[in-house]
Protein backbone atom coordinates (compact mmCIF):
# COMPACT_ATOMS: atom_id res chain seq x y z
CA UNK A 1 0.00 0.00 0.00
CA UNK A 2 1.69 3.20 -1.16
CA UNK A 3 2.18 6.01 1.30
CA UNK A 4 1.62 9.51 -0.06
CA UNK A 5 1.60 12.98 1.37
CA UNK A 6 -1.70 14.85 1.36
CA UNK A 7 -0.12 17.16 -1.24
CA UNK A 8 0.84 14.26 -3.53
CA UNK A 9 -2.61 12.77 -3.10
CA UNK A 10 -4.18 16.01 -4.38
CA UNK A 11 -1.89 16.06 -7.36
CA UNK A 12 -2.55 12.40 -8.19
CA UNK A 13 -6.30 12.93 -8.02
CA UNK A 14 -6.07 15.83 -10.47
CA UNK A 15 -3.84 13.88 -12.83
CA UNK A 16 -6.04 10.77 -12.74
CA UNK A 17 -9.21 12.73 -13.46
CA UNK A 18 -7.52 14.68 -16.28
CA UNK A 19 -6.43 11.40 -17.84
CA UNK A 20 -9.92 9.97 -17.47
CA UNK A 21 -11.80 12.89 -19.08
CA UNK A 22 -10.44 15.42 -21.55
CA UNK A 23 -13.11 17.92 -20.51
CA UNK A 24 -11.43 18.30 -17.12
CA UNK A 25 -9.37 21.49 -17.15
CA UNK A 26 -7.42 23.24 -14.44
CA UNK A 27 -7.16 26.96 -13.91
CA UNK A 28 -5.77 29.23 -11.27
CA UNK A 29 -2.93 31.51 -10.29
CA UNK A 30 0.42 29.83 -10.98
CA UNK A 31 -1.06 26.34 -11.24
CA UNK A 32 0.68 25.73 -14.56
CA UNK A 33 4.35 26.48 -15.07
CA UNK A 34 5.01 26.95 -11.35
CA UNK A 35 3.09 23.86 -10.26
CA UNK A 36 1.02 25.78 -7.73
CA UNK A 37 1.93 27.91 -4.75
CA UNK A 38 1.43 24.86 -2.51
CA UNK A 39 2.99 22.57 -5.12
CA UNK A 40 -0.17 20.58 -5.63
CA UNK A 41 -0.01 20.75 -9.45
CA UNK A 42 3.63 20.12 -10.47
CA UNK A 43 4.08 18.44 -13.83
CA UNK A 44 0.43 18.69 -14.82
CA UNK A 45 0.98 21.41 -17.41
CA UNK A 46 3.86 19.39 -18.85
CA UNK A 47 1.62 16.34 -19.18
CA UNK A 48 -1.65 17.97 -20.27
CA UNK A 49 -0.49 21.17 -21.95
CA UNK A 50 -1.12 24.88 -21.35
CA UNK A 51 -4.62 24.75 -22.83
CA UNK A 52 -5.86 22.35 -20.16
CA UNK A 53 -3.72 23.63 -17.30
CA UNK A 54 -4.16 27.39 -17.47
CA UNK A 55 -2.34 30.05 -15.51
CA UNK A 56 -4.75 32.91 -14.83
CA UNK A 57 -4.24 36.55 -13.98
CA UNK A 58 -4.73 37.41 -10.29
CA UNK A 59 -8.37 37.87 -11.05
CA UNK A 60 -10.47 35.56 -8.91
CA UNK A 61 -13.89 36.88 -9.86
CA UNK A 62 -13.10 36.53 -13.56
CA UNK A 63 -11.71 33.02 -13.56
CA UNK A 64 -14.23 31.60 -11.08
CA UNK A 65 -17.01 33.11 -13.23
CA UNK A 66 -15.29 31.75 -16.32
CA UNK A 67 -15.29 28.32 -14.70
CA UNK A 68 -19.08 28.60 -14.46
CA UNK A 69 -19.41 29.65 -18.11
CA UNK A 70 -17.18 26.76 -19.14
CA UNK A 71 -19.05 24.27 -16.96
CA UNK A 72 -22.49 25.07 -18.36
CA UNK A 73 -21.20 24.74 -21.92
CA UNK A 74 -19.55 21.33 -21.59
CA UNK A 75 -16.26 21.51 -19.68
CA UNK A 76 -15.50 20.21 -16.19
CA UNK A 77 -13.32 22.97 -14.76
CA UNK A 78 -11.28 22.68 -11.59
CA UNK A 79 -10.39 26.15 -10.35
CA UNK A 80 -7.77 26.73 -7.68
CA UNK A 81 -8.45 29.68 -5.43
CA UNK A 82 -5.04 29.48 -3.71
CA UNK A 83 -5.78 30.74 -0.18
CA UNK A 84 -9.32 30.32 1.13
CA UNK A 85 -9.08 33.89 2.38
CA UNK A 86 -9.49 34.89 -1.29
CA UNK A 87 -12.88 33.21 -1.59
CA UNK A 88 -14.73 36.45 -0.75
CA UNK A 89 -13.07 38.12 -3.74
CA UNK A 90 -15.06 35.71 -5.90
CA UNK A 91 -17.98 35.37 -3.50
CA UNK A 92 -20.57 36.74 -5.93
CA UNK A 93 -19.67 34.17 -8.53
CA UNK A 94 -19.72 31.38 -5.93
CA UNK A 95 -22.89 32.14 -3.98
CA UNK A 96 -24.99 34.13 -6.47
CA UNK A 97 -23.96 32.53 -9.73
CA UNK A 98 -22.51 29.04 -9.36
CA UNK A 99 -24.73 27.94 -6.48
CA UNK A 100 -27.95 29.33 -8.00
CA UNK A 101 -27.48 28.77 -11.69
CA UNK A 102 -29.20 25.40 -11.92
CA UNK A 103 -32.05 26.33 -9.60
CA UNK A 104 -33.01 29.66 -11.08
CA UNK A 105 -32.89 28.31 -14.62
CA UNK A 106 -35.36 25.62 -13.65
CA UNK A 107 -32.81 22.83 -14.00
CA UNK A 108 -31.65 23.62 -17.53
CA UNK A 109 -27.96 23.11 -16.77
CA UNK A 110 -25.61 20.88 -14.90
CA UNK A 111 -22.86 22.82 -13.14
CA UNK A 112 -19.84 20.49 -12.81
CA UNK A 113 -17.36 22.82 -11.13
CA UNK A 114 -14.74 22.01 -8.53
CA UNK A 115 -13.17 24.89 -6.63
CA UNK A 116 -10.09 23.97 -4.61
CA UNK A 117 -8.68 26.25 -1.96
CA UNK A 118 -6.20 25.96 0.90
CA UNK A 119 -7.44 26.92 4.33
CA UNK A 120 -6.56 26.71 7.99
CA UNK A 121 -4.02 28.00 10.44
CA UNK A 122 -1.14 26.79 12.51
CA UNK A 123 1.57 27.73 10.04
CA UNK A 124 2.05 31.42 10.81
CA UNK A 125 0.51 32.99 7.72
CA UNK A 126 -1.38 35.62 9.71
CA UNK A 127 -4.97 36.75 9.64
CA UNK A 128 -5.52 37.02 5.87
CA UNK A 129 -3.84 33.77 4.82
CA UNK A 130 -5.14 31.35 7.48
CA UNK A 131 -8.91 31.54 7.44
CA UNK A 132 -11.11 28.49 7.52
CA UNK A 133 -13.83 29.20 5.01
CA UNK A 134 -16.46 26.50 5.22
CA UNK A 135 -18.88 28.51 7.33
CA UNK A 136 -18.94 31.32 4.75
CA UNK A 137 -20.20 28.75 2.25
CA UNK A 138 -22.48 26.50 4.28
CA UNK A 139 -25.23 29.12 4.38
CA UNK A 140 -25.68 28.70 0.62
CA UNK A 141 -27.89 25.92 -0.72
CA UNK A 142 -26.53 24.59 -4.00
CA UNK A 143 -22.93 24.05 -2.92
CA UNK A 144 -21.28 20.87 -1.72
CA UNK A 145 -18.47 21.52 0.75
CA UNK A 146 -15.71 18.97 1.31
CA UNK A 147 -12.89 19.11 3.90
CA UNK A 148 -10.48 16.23 3.40
CA UNK A 149 -8.31 15.54 6.43
CA UNK A 150 -6.12 12.64 5.29
CA UNK A 151 -4.18 11.72 2.13
CA UNK A 152 -6.65 9.00 1.18
CA UNK A 153 -9.57 11.41 1.47
CA UNK A 154 -7.66 14.20 -0.29
CA UNK A 155 -7.34 11.77 -3.20
CA UNK A 156 -10.68 10.00 -3.27
CA UNK A 157 -12.90 12.93 -2.37
CA UNK A 158 -11.25 15.26 -4.89
CA UNK A 159 -11.82 12.68 -7.60
CA UNK A 160 -15.45 12.45 -6.50
CA UNK A 161 -15.77 16.24 -6.55
CA UNK A 162 -14.48 16.43 -10.13
CA UNK A 163 -16.92 13.71 -11.23
CA UNK A 164 -19.85 15.37 -9.50
CA UNK A 165 -22.30 17.18 -11.80
CA UNK A 166 -22.75 19.90 -9.18
CA UNK A 167 -20.55 22.63 -7.71
CA UNK A 168 -18.18 21.29 -5.08
CA UNK A 169 -15.84 23.38 -2.96
CA UNK A 170 -12.90 21.33 -1.72
CA UNK A 171 -11.12 23.07 1.13
CA UNK A 172 -7.71 21.55 1.66
CA UNK A 173 -5.93 22.22 4.96
CA UNK A 174 -2.57 23.81 4.36
CA UNK A 175 -1.25 22.52 7.66
CA UNK A 176 -1.80 18.96 6.42
CA UNK A 177 -0.06 19.10 3.02
CA UNK A 178 2.99 17.27 4.41
CA UNK A 179 0.94 14.67 6.29
CA UNK A 180 1.71 11.14 5.12
CA UNK A 181 -0.78 8.34 4.94
CA UNK A 182 -1.70 5.22 3.07
CA UNK A 183 -3.60 5.65 -0.16
CA UNK A 184 -4.44 2.13 -1.34
CA UNK A 185 -4.10 1.53 -5.08
CA UNK A 186 -7.78 0.70 -5.32
CA UNK A 187 -8.98 3.85 -3.51
CA UNK A 188 -10.67 5.19 -6.62
CA UNK A 189 -13.51 7.61 -6.21
CA UNK A 190 -14.89 7.96 -2.68
CA UNK A 191 -18.44 8.96 -1.90
CA UNK A 192 -19.22 12.55 -0.91
CA UNK A 193 -21.43 13.12 2.12
CA UNK A 194 -20.07 10.31 4.26
CA UNK A 195 -18.31 10.82 7.60
CA UNK A 196 -15.59 8.41 8.69
CA UNK A 197 -15.25 6.91 12.17
CA UNK A 198 -11.52 7.34 12.72
CA UNK A 199 -11.46 5.66 16.11
CA UNK A 200 -14.19 3.70 17.80
CA UNK A 201 -14.99 4.35 21.42
CA UNK A 202 -17.77 3.86 23.97
CA UNK A 203 -17.70 6.91 26.26
CA UNK A 204 -17.55 10.19 24.34
CA UNK A 205 -18.03 11.15 20.68
CA UNK A 206 -15.76 13.85 19.26
CA UNK A 207 -16.72 15.31 15.87
CA UNK A 208 -14.39 17.47 13.81
CA UNK A 209 -12.66 17.92 10.50
CA UNK A 210 -9.08 18.24 9.27
CA UNK A 211 -6.59 19.51 11.89
CA UNK A 212 -9.15 19.10 14.68
CA UNK A 213 -9.55 15.40 13.90
CA UNK A 214 -5.83 14.79 14.23
CA UNK A 215 -5.75 16.70 17.51
CA UNK A 216 -8.80 14.79 18.75
CA UNK A 217 -7.06 11.51 17.93
CA UNK A 218 -4.08 12.60 20.02
CA UNK A 219 -6.41 13.58 22.84
CA UNK A 220 -8.12 10.18 22.59
CA UNK A 221 -4.79 8.37 22.94
CA UNK A 222 -3.97 10.32 26.08
CA UNK A 223 -7.42 9.78 27.59
CA UNK A 224 -7.32 6.06 26.88
CA UNK A 225 -4.64 5.80 29.57
CA UNK A 226 -7.20 7.23 32.01
CA UNK A 227 -9.80 4.74 30.92
CA UNK A 228 -11.84 7.17 28.81
CA UNK A 229 -12.76 5.49 25.54
CA UNK A 230 -13.23 8.18 22.86
CA UNK A 231 -14.89 7.81 19.46
CA UNK A 232 -13.54 10.26 16.85
CA UNK A 233 -15.54 11.14 13.74
CA UNK A 234 -14.08 12.94 10.74
CA UNK A 235 -16.97 14.68 8.97
CA UNK A 236 -15.04 14.89 5.66
CA UNK A 237 -18.04 16.49 3.91
CA UNK A 238 -19.86 19.40 5.56
CA UNK A 239 -22.53 19.69 2.89
CA UNK A 240 -24.27 17.36 2.60
CA UNK A 241 -23.78 16.35 6.23
CA UNK A 242 -23.77 12.69 7.27
CA UNK A 243 -26.19 13.05 10.16
CA UNK A 244 -26.79 9.30 10.43
CA UNK A 245 -23.21 8.52 11.43
CA UNK A 246 -23.20 11.32 14.02
CA UNK A 247 -26.52 10.29 15.55
CA UNK A 248 -25.54 6.64 15.67
CA UNK A 249 -22.40 7.57 17.59
CA UNK A 250 -24.27 9.81 20.06
CA UNK A 251 -26.71 6.98 20.60
CA UNK A 252 -23.79 4.76 21.55
CA UNK A 253 -21.80 7.17 23.74
CA UNK A 254 -24.45 9.61 25.00
CA UNK A 255 -21.83 12.37 25.05
CA UNK A 256 -20.80 14.81 22.29
CA UNK A 257 -17.83 17.15 21.89
CA UNK A 258 -17.57 19.28 18.75
CA UNK A 259 -14.11 20.54 17.79
CA UNK A 260 -13.81 23.33 15.23
CA UNK A 261 -11.06 25.51 13.85
CA UNK A 262 -13.57 28.33 13.48
CA UNK A 263 -15.35 31.03 15.47
CA UNK A 264 -18.15 30.04 17.82
CA UNK A 265 -21.01 31.91 16.16
CA UNK A 266 -22.82 30.84 13.00
CA UNK A 267 -20.68 27.79 12.44
CA UNK A 268 -21.40 24.16 11.69
CA UNK A 269 -20.63 23.29 15.30
CA UNK A 270 -23.84 25.06 16.22
CA UNK A 271 -25.67 23.05 13.59
CA UNK A 272 -24.36 19.82 15.12
CA UNK A 273 -25.45 20.94 18.58
CA UNK A 274 -28.84 21.68 17.06
CA UNK A 275 -28.91 18.24 15.45
CA UNK A 276 -28.13 16.66 18.83
CA UNK A 277 -30.91 18.68 20.45
CA UNK A 278 -33.47 18.01 17.72
CA UNK A 279 -32.84 14.35 16.99
CA UNK A 280 -30.47 13.06 19.66
CA UNK A 281 -31.68 14.65 22.88
CA UNK A 282 -32.89 11.37 24.40
CA UNK A 283 -29.48 9.78 23.79
CA UNK A 284 -27.55 12.49 25.62
CA UNK A 285 -26.25 11.97 29.15
CA UNK A 286 -24.31 15.26 29.29
CA UNK A 287 -24.48 18.76 27.81
CA UNK A 288 -23.01 19.11 24.31
CA UNK A 289 -19.56 20.67 24.53
CA UNK A 290 -18.13 22.92 21.80
CA UNK A 291 -14.41 23.63 21.46
CA UNK A 292 -13.63 26.34 18.94
CA UNK A 293 -11.92 29.68 18.40
CA UNK A 294 -14.52 31.71 20.28
CA UNK A 295 -14.15 35.31 19.15
CA UNK A 296 -10.44 34.99 18.34
CA UNK A 297 -8.82 35.56 14.96
CA UNK A 298 -5.86 33.82 13.38
CA UNK A 299 -3.06 35.90 14.86
CA UNK A 300 0.47 36.00 13.45
CA UNK A 301 2.47 35.55 16.67
CA UNK A 302 2.85 31.86 17.49
CA UNK A 303 1.65 32.01 21.12
CA UNK A 304 -1.45 33.92 20.05
CA UNK A 305 -2.27 31.63 17.13
CA UNK A 306 -1.81 28.61 19.40
CA UNK A 307 -4.23 30.12 21.89
CA UNK A 308 -6.77 30.81 19.16
CA UNK A 309 -6.90 27.37 17.55
CA UNK A 310 -8.14 24.55 19.80
CA UNK A 311 -5.09 22.64 21.03
CA UNK A 312 -4.79 18.98 21.99
CA UNK A 313 -4.90 20.12 25.60
CA UNK A 314 -8.12 22.09 25.18
CA UNK A 315 -9.77 19.24 23.32
CA UNK A 316 -8.57 16.75 25.96
CA UNK A 317 -10.01 18.85 28.77
CA UNK A 318 -13.32 19.25 26.95
CA UNK A 319 -13.60 15.50 26.48
CA UNK A 320 -12.68 14.82 30.10
CA UNK A 321 -15.25 17.32 31.33
CA UNK A 322 -17.92 15.79 29.11
CA UNK A 323 -16.98 12.25 30.11
CA UNK A 324 -17.53 12.99 33.80
CA UNK A 325 -20.49 15.37 33.49
CA UNK A 326 -23.53 14.13 35.42
Amino acid sequence: MPELTYREAVRNALADEMRADENVILMGEDVGAAGGVFKTTPGLQAEFGPERVRDTPISEEAFIGAALGAAITGMRPVAELMFADFIPVAMDQIVNQIAKHRYMSGGQFIVPITIRSAQGGGVGFGTQHSQTAENWLLNTPGLKVVLPGTPVDAYGLLRAAIRENNPVIVLEHKGLYNLKGEVPEDTGVLELGKARVMREGRHVTVVGAQLMVHRALEAAEALAKDGIDVEVIDLRTLAPLDTATILASIKKTGRLVIAEEAPHTSSWGGDLASLAADEGIYYLDAPVKRVNMGRAMFAYSEPLESLAIPSVTRITEAIRETAYAQ
Binding site: E61, G65, A66, G69, A70, I72, T73, M75, Q97
Partner: peptide, 11 residues
Protein backbone atom coordinates in the same frame (compact mmCIF):
# COMPACT_ATOMS: atom_id res chain seq x y z
CA UNK B 1 -19.30 38.98 -18.10
CA UNK B 2 -17.00 36.36 -16.53
CA UNK B 3 -19.57 33.68 -17.37
CA UNK B 4 -19.48 34.70 -21.02
CA UNK B 5 -15.69 34.54 -20.93
CA UNK B 6 -15.99 30.93 -19.75
CA UNK B 7 -18.44 30.05 -22.52
CA UNK B 8 -15.93 31.48 -25.00
CA UNK B 9 -13.22 29.32 -23.41
CA UNK B 10 -15.32 26.22 -24.15
CA UNK B 11 -15.83 27.36 -27.75
Amino acid sequence: LPIAVGAALTA
